[in-house]
Amino acid sequence: MKVNIKTIKDITVIEAEGNIDSRTAGDFEKATVDATQGEDKVIIDLSQVEFLSSAGLRSLLMLYRQVKARNGKIVLVGVSEEIQDVMENTGFINFFTLTELLEDGVKELS
């Protein structure tokens, strides 16, 4: 599990790669929560994430709370069909904007 953080315009872009499970979700959460302190435009690129367990959902929940507290918005990019199903079953999907491509995510937040 790797996390890479960059900035596009005034948007914080977090690229995750690998599996987000009970072993890696802590690192993912720390990296994303740290990178989005005081930020209100956030993109999480999950196109290189193959597997996301309930531990990963909990990390997304914590991140959502932090960004939402500033009235910010989170766009998830490139979420696989299987992970989308999981987000739908758990009612998470309604609280995030999903786009297929990074450029659409940037447009969404511009």
Binding site: S53, S54, A55, L57, R58, L61, Y64, R65, K68, V86, N89, T90, G91, F92, F95
Partner: peptide, 25 residues
């Protein structure tokens, strides 16, 4: 978690219970 829990805003969600829910589902 039931339907009511799963439609709650994320701000008000309980943290646990999703793993078993996803298993059963």
């Amino acid at each position: 978690p039931d339907e009511e829990d799963l439609t709650k805003p994320l701000e008000e969600r309980q943290i646990g219970g999703l793993g078993i829910f996803l298993t059963v589902k």
